[in-house]
Simulated assay, not measured.
Amino acid sequence: MALTLGYPSAERVTLCATDDVAARLEDLQDVLAQGPGRLAFTNGVHVRALLDHAEDPRWPELSGAVRDELGPVVAEAFPMRSGGEVVGVVTYHLQPGSSLALDAEDCQLVTDLVGAAALDHDGDHEWGAVAGTGPWGDRSAIHQATGMVMVQLRVDATDALALLKAHAFTSGESLAATAHHVLDRSLDFPTTDTGEGGAP
């Protein structure tokens, strides 16, 4: 199980993941910008998906990556609501053929209770209220690394973050790990002068 706030936004942060499979599933959805969690957040509905090449054509890249890294996984994503607003998603992962202990209606009720308990009811949600600590520390590192890539390549934030996500995906590591490599200078994205004037 994983609990993620601010799903499609730049402030997206996974508050907890019960195991490595849950953590990697959330990271892949973030890197690839697709999956049942994003759909549950956007549409405010429960989404069930078998992530396998042959079974769910809605997210071919995610399905393939999950199957290759984790094996076929059933994902059950529930929107987490507070004060009438969808603020996050709780995603459960299961083996194919298994089911949740509670029915979907009860799972949604529990998810909404978590949302109400985790956030204020005034609708003024400050995702970065404790930035630099716990899971927000990783998100802060991603923001800092994005800024460094912007400077290195002279690109905007969207392109810089896309490059970080592409590197994370191709290297098979989490986005946070890639960000930390940029911050400790073990990874950079240098430009190469290809003009006719030769090497700089």
Rank of each mutant, 00 (worst) to 15 (best):
A118I: 08
A177G: 14
A117N: 07
D120S: 15
L183T: 00
D103C: 06
V74C: 14
L109T: 05
W127H: 12
S98F: 12
H93E: 04
A176I: 03
A145P: 08
E105Q: 10
D68W: 05
R67T: 00
V182L: 07
A118H: 08
A162L: 01
D120Y: 09
A65F: 05
G195W: 01
T170M: 10
V87H: 08
D138F: 01
L119S: 09
H125N: 13
D112V: 03
D159Q: 13
H125E: 11
R139N: 02
G84K: 03
H167Q: 13
P72Q: 11
P79E: 05
R185E: 02
G115R: 02
T146Y: 02
A116L: 13
V66G: 08
A162F: 01
R185G: 04
A141E: 01
G172L: 04
G84Y: 00
G64E: 04
E69R: 09
P190D: 02
A116G: 12
S171L: 09
R67A: 15
M150A: 09
D106A: 15
T133N: 10
L100Y: 05
L187Q: 14
L113Q: 13
V66N: 09
V110W: 10
G84M: 01
G128H: 05
A160T: 04
Q144L: 15
Y92D: 09
G195A: 14
H143C: 04
L113V: 02
D103R: 08
V151W: 00
V149I: 10
L94E: 05
W127Q: 12
D103I: 00
D184K: 06
K165C: 15
V151Y: 01
E196I: 08
Q152S: 15
S186Y: 01
L70K: 13
E69K: 02
V73Q: 12
G132L: 06
A118T: 15
V90I: 14
